[in-house]
Design a protein around this nucleic acid. Structure first.
Lengths: 205, 205
DNA sequence: AGTCATATATGACTGTGGTCATATTTAATA
DNA sequence: TATTAAATATGACCACAGTCATATATGACT
């Protein structure tokens, strides 16, 4: 049924596959340029397909919606941060520091391109709602770290870990939103750092 | 320049004004029914105007966008909650209880119509971003209460009140989002109640 | 009542995202 | 090479939000 012989890694890639990859790359290339030039909203699918010299319908063979294309950009960016975060997790610091540092790292990555991040956050919410964002990556990581924190006595023993992680994610998310839409140009990563301390220490006396 | 004589309250309302109010009410009436019947997205402006027996252009004389109409519904709902919150603030409870109760009240109001709340939250964010939501109402109220809390020694003296209020709003907002998009039917108001306690007491030991 | 400036109503029209029946290209099989 | 099935490409087409030039209704003033 299937061709099993493989001489070199890419020998098996058919013309079809090659063309598919080429077309997808072309869309990425053109769209990326246009998004940066004129923003997401004012870039039309028509313009993308014309500039990429493909039919309009073809675009939708590769991306179900215009927003899906945007989300693919987001995914690429996310993968970059993921590597940096992994590195941080391997360091020899306290759980509390780790949590703070990870969030600061993610924050700094977001600080690099405010407008694009805004679009990503918004579109992600529109497509997957809020829950998905929580369940993937960050929240699981936080639950894990908090669990360890209980072991090292850095975190209260009788706490509901999921809710605590939810609070941290919540504060992060809300602070991100506030920063994204704020006019003034304060440092998001500093802001988040202070707020995480507050979550650990509590505001009540 | 202006007619000053007024015999009865409504004698001065011109035919124009009357018709304007009538038309706006008609749009509200028809749209409200359709939104409940088939949801916001699948209700078209065309259908609203046809059922309301007005021209399509007329709709946009009253509401700049379809979403603006939705936001007007939201405003009406907001005003209802506002009264209830004011009542709570007059009670003789601790600052911490007051904060918790106010958020629980708002949560309960949101619990009444999940789908509509989802639309409101989403559209509000789309139109005004996140900052506006914070600055109006809730955040000012929280800053006020926290200030009082410092006076009554319920809240740490040297804390950054704005950031603390931000954390509470953030946790509220994120929990709202999580609840809105979750499949399971847990109690949002209970969830928020526990989380507020966590914010006061901290998670570190 | 008649005149006129202004507020309001209207629907044909436009721009854009997305669909779908049909055409074309590719690759497996004979 | 010839035939055929399946993958892929395509642009005419549709639905819907929003615009705008034009038509109509209203009320102030004479």
């Amino acid at each position: 049924m299937t061709t099993v012989m493989i001489d070199r890694d890419d020998v098996n890639i058919s013309l079809r596959e090659k063309k598919k990859i080429e077309t997808k790359n072309k869309i990425f290339e053109v769209a990326g340029r246009l998004f940066k030039e004129k923003g997401f909203e004012s870039t039309t699918v028509d313009e993308i397909t014309t500039k990429a010299r493909i039919g309009k319908g073809t675009f939708f063979n590769y991306f179900p919606t215009k927003e899906a294309l945007l989300m693919d950009f987001a995914k690429q960016k996310e993968e970059l941060v993921y590597d940096i975060v992994l590195k941080e997790l391997k360091t020899n610091t306290s759980v509390r520091e780790k949590i703070k540092n990870v969030l600061v790292l993610v924050a700094k990555s977001n600080e690099k391109d405010k407008e694009l991040t805004k679009l990503f956050v918004f579109e992600h919410m529109r497509r997957y709602g809020y829950d998905e964002r929580k369940s993937t990556g960050l929240n699981i990581l936080l639950c894990d770290l908090l669990e360890k924190g209980i072991g090292t006595k850095e975190v209260k023993k009788n706490i509901d870990i999921k809710k605590a992680a939810g609070n941290i994610t919540g504060v992060y998310f809300a602070s991100l939103m506030e920063w994204l839409w704020s006019q003034s140009d304060y440092s998001f990563s500093e802001d988040i750092s202070i707020k995480i301390d507050m979550i650990f220490e509590g505001i009540g006396s």
